[in-house]
Design a protein around this nucleic acid. Structure first.
Lengths: 213, 213
DNA sequence: AAATGTGAAGAGGTTCACAGCG
DNA sequence: CGCTGTGAACCTCTTCACATTT
């Protein structure tokens, strides 16, 4: 399965759960597209789904439950994922809450910070630990996904320590390029970059408006 | 200028400021690529930059300061941007801090929440206001960018009200497709989707490892 | 008749190879 | 000689059109 399709598959999965909750048991690619606000075309949906196997019935549409299960399987949502969060400031805290509420099989299993005022704090049964003990705690908690929510200068070292502790996938919110030599998947969430797209678009729109006037 | 190039331009800009701070006054596309951890090729960098005009000297490289200024101009970093944040939970709080610290011309100018325990709270001179007065406050504060950090069910209504108040660019952290009919640029930050890429990749890697064994 | 599944065409962006300057 | 700037080849993903199945 191709890379850019994965977030789409996840969107389908969510939409299918919604449809199922609304009492439907079958859905067409067109209905699914409508549910997603037509941000994705029905053709695209069919291409994505057909690449997983013959999941629909011609003339009828897709049976929701089997399709949702298939998507959950492909996306790895059937495993339980144990997540380690480094940095428990506002961002880390927000992510912990979000992750826990979002998907029942995502489980925050370890939290780290450097600040003495946070170490020892309890969050939903998890004690915030000192970053110095990270390797040990990550392995004991059996974490397989890491989230980096620390300031940029500290991120690189933490990424390397996470990788050393056996974590193979990292979601990085620090605005730095992480260099982990081991084969680890790093996804960067570049908030400032996203903002810059907005500011660029707004200035470009202004320039166009002036040119037309 | 093409869309996917914008975050790259922003990355160049950051790297150039770093290089300037390190005392350099000139840089080649290859050096810049190295500074970015080779996540972007030197060819790509030259293509991106050349589309802005002839900014480099053949045989020498790029003069850092003029180039950084040009990038800042293209990205709209020379304007002052006034940002309205809806939702002041941990996420909203984290974003406010991040935005303020990140770029001096990004200014959080209004904060909204629905919770009585947050309304009236002061954050760096800004008073958290009731979401009911959003339109009025946004206009008074002259906000031109909106950030949505509220739970999914509330996001749609807030997006529409932001658009009605004249905001034309929105960064949305709620896992919902926003439908604003006015021409507004919406960027969705899909945290769950990003996580799903990690879980997919990890399960696919496991499946491959088993297949090889 | 209605909706899926799919080869072929198309668009969009990246890489290559090298011409053009300093 | 070194590095930029760029047309052309390339590749990847999306859209189109339609054959296929219930």
């Amino acid at each position: 399965m191709i890379d850019p399709a994965i977030p789409r598959l996840y969107a389908y999965h969510r939409a299918l759960l919604e449809a199922a909750a609304a009492g439907k048991s079958t859905i067409t690619s067109g209905d699914l597209a409508a549910l997603l606000g037509h941000t994705i075309s029905s053709t695209q949906i069919r291409k994505d789904l057909s690449s997983l196997g013959p999941l629909g019935r011609r003339g009828q549409g897709y049976a929701i439950n089997p399709l949702a299960e298939q998507l959950a399987w492909v996306l790895g949502l059937e495993h339980e994922w144990r997540i380690a969060i480094a940095g428990f400031g506002y961002l880390g805290h927000a992510l912990a809450t979000f992750i826990t509420s979002r998907e029942s099989r995502f489980c925050v299993a370890a939290i780290f910070d450097r600040s003495p005022s946070l170490i020892g704090v309890d969050w939903q049964g998890i004690t915030v630990a000192d970053i110095d003990s990270m390797e040990h705690d990550i392995q004991r908690a059996g974490c397989n996904i890491g989230v980096i929510a620390v300031p940029a200068p500290a991120a690189q070292a933490i990424a390397q320590r996470m990788a050393a502790a056996g974590i193979r996938a990292i979601l990085n919110f620090a605005p730095t390029v992480l260099d982990v030599r081991v084969p680890v998947l790093v996804r960067n969430i570049d908030l400032a970059g996203e903002l810059s797209m907005l500011t660029h678009w707004l200035t470009a729109a202004d320039a166009n408006a002036e040119a037309e006037a």
